[in-house]
C-alpha cells in the first residue's frame, strides 16, 4: 500500500472549495446560537419559574440528544408536518443549508447558555453589592459589572464550544451539503482512497482549529488584561 500524493494534490483544492460553506455554517450558527444562548440564559436566571423551566427543558433536550439526530429531525422529519410545510418558514426548512443552520444553532445555543450562566454565577457577589451600595440600578449592574466580568469567565469554555461547533459542521455532509467533509466523502466514494483524502482533510480541520484557538487566545488575553499583576 502506498500513499498517493498526486491524488492528494488533486483532491485538496476540491475539498478546499467547501471551506467557504464550512465557515458560513460555523459563523452563522455561532452568531445565531450566541443570541439564542443569551436569551435562554436570561430566562434561566430570570427568577420566573415558568421561564426558567422552559429554558431548562430546552437545554436538557438539546444536550441530551445527538446532534446528528437533531439535524435529521429538522431536515428529514419536519417536512412530515403539515404546519411546517404550509408555514412561512418553509423556505428555510426546504433548504438543507437552512436546516443545518437551524439544527446547529439550536444545539450550540443549549450548550452556550449554560456556559454563559456559569460566567454570570461566577461574578463575585461582593462586587455586585458594591455596585448596589453605590446606587447602581439592577440593569446598570448587569451591563457595567456582570456582563464584562462574566464574559471573561465564560470565554475559555465558550472557545471550546466554538471548536465543537466547527467539528459539528462536518455533519452537514449527511444532509447532502457539499462542505469540506461532504466533498471529501464524494471523492472517497469515487477513488476509494480514504487514507489520503480523510487524513489530508483532518489536517485542514486541525489548521482551522489552530487558528481559531489563536484568535480566541487573543480575545482572552484582551478580556483578561486586568487579571495580570504586572502592568
Amino acid at each position: 500500500m502506498s500513499f498517493d500524493l498526486p491524488l492528494i494534490a488533486e483532491a485538496l483544492p476540491k475539498m478546499l472549495m467547501g471551506i467557504g460553506l464550512t465557515f458560513q455554517l460555523l459563523v452563522l450558527s455561532a452568531i445565531l446560537g450566541l443570541a439564542l444562548a443569551i436569551g435562554v440564559m436570561l430566562m434561566r436566571i430570570s427568577g420566573k419559574w415558568y421561564l426558567s423551566w422552559l429554558a431548562q427543558v430546552y437545554i436538557y433536550v438539546f444536550r441530551g440528544t445527538p446532534i446528528l439526530v437533531q439535524i435529521f429531525i429538522v431536515y428529514y422529519g419536519f417536512p412530515q408536518l403539515d404546519f411546517i410545510r404550509e408555514g412561512f418558514l418553509w423556505p428555510i426548512f426546504r433548504d438543507p443549508f437552512g436546516c443545518a443552520i437551524v439544527a446547529l444553532t439550536l444545539n450550540t445555543g443549549a450548550y452556550v447558555s449554560e456556559i454563559l450562566r456559569g460566567g454570570v454565577l461566577g461574578v463575585d457577589r461582593g462586587v455586585l453589592e458594591a455596585g448596589e451600595a453605590l446606587g447602581l440600578s439592577k440593569s446598570q449592574r448587569f451591563i457595567y459589572l456582570t456582563t464584562p466580568i462574566a464574559s471573561r469567565l465564560a470565554l475559555p469554555a465558550y472557545g471550546n464550544d466554538i471548536i465543537s461547533l466547527l467539528k459539528s459542521t462536518a455533519l452537514a455532509s449527511t444532509i447532502t451539503l457539499a462542505d469540506m467533509t461532504g466533498i471529501a466523502r464524494t471523492i472517497v466514494a469515487q477513488t476509494y482512497a480514504p487514507y489520503e483524502i480523510f487524513i489530508s482533510l483532518a489536517i485542514v480541520y486541525m489548521i482551522v482549529t489552530f487558528f481559531l484557538q489563536k484568535l480566541l487566545g487573543r480575545v482572552e488575553r484582551y478580556l483578561g488584561r486586568y487579571t495580570i499583576r504586572e502592568g
Binding site: 471548536i163 467539528k167 459542521t169 462536518a170 455533519l171 449527511t174 480523510f198 483532518a202 480541520y205
Partner: peptide, 8 residues
C-alpha cells in the same frame, strides 16, 4: 480534539 468525529 481538532478533527470532526465523523471524519475519524
Amino acid at each position: 480534539r481538532g478533527t470532526p468525529e465523523i471524519l475519524v
